[in-house]
C-alpha cells in the first residue's frame, strides 16, 4: 500500500486509475477491470427492474434485462476476466431472478460459466438469486481490495462499492453536462450503476458526505469512448 503512488497515478493513462495501490481500468461503459487480477467488477445491474415496476402498474418496456445483459456480454468478451464480481443490487428485487425470461437466464448462465462469479448481496437483493450459478457473498476481500455493496461510513482503504449510483455534472460555456461516473480519492472507489434503467445521484449529494478525502476526490465521468477525470472544484450539484 502506497499512498503517494495511489495519488500520482490517478491520471497515468486516460482510463487507468490506482486504488489502494492496485491498477484498474475505468471502462467508459461503466465497469472496472483489474488487469493484474483478471478481475471484472460491475455494480447495480438492477436486472428485471422493468418487470418490478410493472408489478406496480408502470408498464415500462420489458427490455431492460436484455439490454443490460447485452452490454455486459460485450465487456466480458473484451476483457475475458477469470473473476467477475457483481457488486450488489444485481436484481431489482428478491423475485427478479425467478421472473427473468428463460432466454435471458440462458444468456446469463453462459456468461457465468467458466469463471469465478460472485454475487455480492445488495439491499435490493439480500438473498442469493434463485437457481443461478455463482457464489453469493456479503463482501469479498481480494489482495488489498474489499468489495461490498454499500460503502462503509468510516474510510476503508481499498474498498470498492456501488449502491449510490454516482453521477457528476459540469457546466461549461453555459451548458450543463451530466453523466454517470466513478468517484474515488485514490483510496476507495464507488462505481456507477450499470443497469439500463438505473438513475443516478450527484456525487455532491449529502449521501456521499464523509466518504472521500476532498482534496483528492475525482469524478471519472463516462464519455462515449473514454472517461473524463474531473476534479471536485469543477463539479456542480443537481
Amino acid at each position: 500500500m502506497n499512498f503517494s503512488l495511489a495519488r500520482t497515478s490517478l491520471i497515468a493513462e486516460a482510463n487507468l486509475v490506482g486504488i489502494a495501490g492496485e491498477r484498474a481500468v475505468c471502462d467508459p461503459r461503466g465497469v472496472l477491470y483489474f488487469p493484474d487480477l483478471r478481475l471484472l467488477a460491475v455494480s447495480d445491474l438492477h436486472l428485471e427492474k422493468g418487470s418490478s415496476l410493472a408489478r406496480r402498474g408502470a408498464l415500462i418496456p420489458p427490455y431492460d434485462t436484455g439490454a443490460t445483459l447485452l452490454r455486459l456480454q460485450a465487456v466480458i468478451a473484451d476483457y475475458q476476466p477469470s473473476i467477475v464480481i457483481s457488486l450488489g443490487d444485481s436484481f431489482h428485487d428478491g423475485g427478479g431472478a425467478e421472473r427473468m425470461h428463460a432466454s435471458f437466464r440462458e444468456r446469463l448462465e453462459a456468461l457465468i460459466s467458466g469463471r469465478d462469479w460472485f454475487w455480492v448481496a445488495g439491499n435490493h437483493d439480500p438473498e442469493a438469486p434463485a437457481d443461478l450459478p455463482g457464489e453469493t457473498v456479503r463482501e469479498l476481500a481480494i489482495g488489498s481490495l474489499l468489495f461490498r455493496h454499500e460503502p462503509s461510513k468510516e474510510r476503508v482503504e481499498g474498498e470498492i462499492a456501488g449502491h449510490l449510483h454516482p453521477c457528476a455534472r459540469i457546466v461549461q460555456r453555459g451548458r450543463s453536462v451530466r453523466r454517470r461516473c466513478f468517484v474515488g480519492d485514490g483510496d476507495r472507489m464507488i462505481m456507477p450503476a450499470f443497469g439500463a434503467y438505473t438513475g443516478s445521484l450527484n456525487v455532491l449529494d449529502r449521501a456521499y458526505a464523509g466518504l472521500f478525502r476532498l482534496d483528492t476526490l475525482m469524478a471519472y465521468m463516462l464519455g462515449a469512448e473514454r472517461i473524463f477525470a474531473i476534479s471536485r472544484s469543477m463539479l456542480r450539484p443537481g
Binding site: 459540469i170 461549461q172 460555456r173 453536462v177 465521468m221 473524463f228
Partner: peptide
C-alpha cells in the same frame, strides 16, 4: 463530449 473534454 467536447465540453467534457475541455473540462477534463
Amino acid at each position: 463530449e467536447s465540453l467534457l473534454m475541455e473540462a477534463a
